[in-house]
């Protein structure tokens, strides 16, 4: 120690300390920025956009237009955002199999990667709702009961209180939510697909959306404490069960009791 203390006034020390400090700051800076080299990302994005555009021209442009400007068969996609593309394509709603009252969910046509490429292309046309981040979709801290209240106020009049879906006019419908993933629910609220209104962040904040997702997930996962749930469709299913099941049992029993002893 003594030897070190004796040399600390040496002029070389200043230079060495300066070097260490510079290396430290530069190193931290390098580590902090090197995770996402700006140049490389930009070129990846561009590849995705180009690939997305190719897929778009192949599969979507006949209805939505060569430049996504829309035609008489389909609306413009400029500004609908990546969230909308992901919701519509990943759930198989787009491309539509046939014109109809509404595009229904079906097995998706494109892979996840292709969906992401198309989403990148559409998002590159104009700003729009982005695909929700993992943080936004994390509903683990959300209040289920609060979500229930929000669900009954905002969603139940079309999707039914149990999330089983409901009919709208002229063959349109609100689909069942029993198979919906948190991401799909979030994107649907954000973009208002088909006949659904948009629930932007001003209407339902991110926390509200998480609460609604938590409630729907609870509906999906919750066991049925009363026994067989009959699809949770309400009195119509109950009445059907009553006549097709219970009354048939009883008439059978009555016939059995009424048979003459031989």
């Amino acid at each position: 120690m003594k030897a070190l203390a004796a040399r600390r006034r040496n002029p070389v020390v200043v230079t060495l300390l300066l070097l260490v400090a510079l290396l430290g700051v530069g190193g931290v800076y390098a580590v902090a920025t090197s995770a996402a080299p700006a140049e490389a990302t930009a070129s990846n994005d561009q590849t995705a956009i180009d690939e997305g555009k190719r897929l778009y021209l192949e599969g979507c442009s006949s209805c939505h237009g060569l430049n996504a400007e829309g035609t008489s068969n389909g609306p413009t996609l400029i500004g609908v955002g990546a969230a909308s593309v992901h919701f519509q394509v990943a759930t198989g709603r787009m491309p539509m199999a046939a014109p109809g009252a509404q595009a229904g969910a079906k097995p998706p046509v494109y892979t996840d990667e292709e969906v992401a490429q198309m989403a990148a292309y559409i998002a590159s046309l104009a700003p729009g709702p982005a695909i929700p981040t993992a943080e936004q979709l994390d509903y683990s801290d959300a209040d289920v009961a609060e979500g229930g209240v929000l669900f009954r106020i905002n969603c139940a009049q079309c999707h039914q209180a149990a999330g089983g879906g409901g009919a709208l006019t002229q063959g349109k419908y609100a689909p069942s939510l029993m198979d919906a993933t948190p991401q799909e629910i979030y994107e649907a609220m954000l973009t208002g697909p088909q006949n659904m209104p948009v629930f932007g962040d001003g209407t339902l904040t991110v926390e509200d959306k998480q609460a609604v997702i938590a409630y729907i997930m609870n509906l999906q996962e919750a066991p049925s404490p009363g026994g067989i749930s009959l699809g949770r469709l309400g009195p119509v299913a109950e009445g059907l069960f009553l006549f097709a099941g219970v009354m048939v049992i009883f008439i059978g029993l009555a016939v059995w009791i009424g048979i003459k002893a031989r």
């Binding site: 139940a156 209180a161 309400g234 109950e238």
Partner: peptide, 15 residues
Amino acid sequence: PDQVSAGSQPDWYIG
């Protein structure tokens, strides 16, 4: 009073 669910039905005998 401000809420209603789709698929609201009465029991079968009021149907």
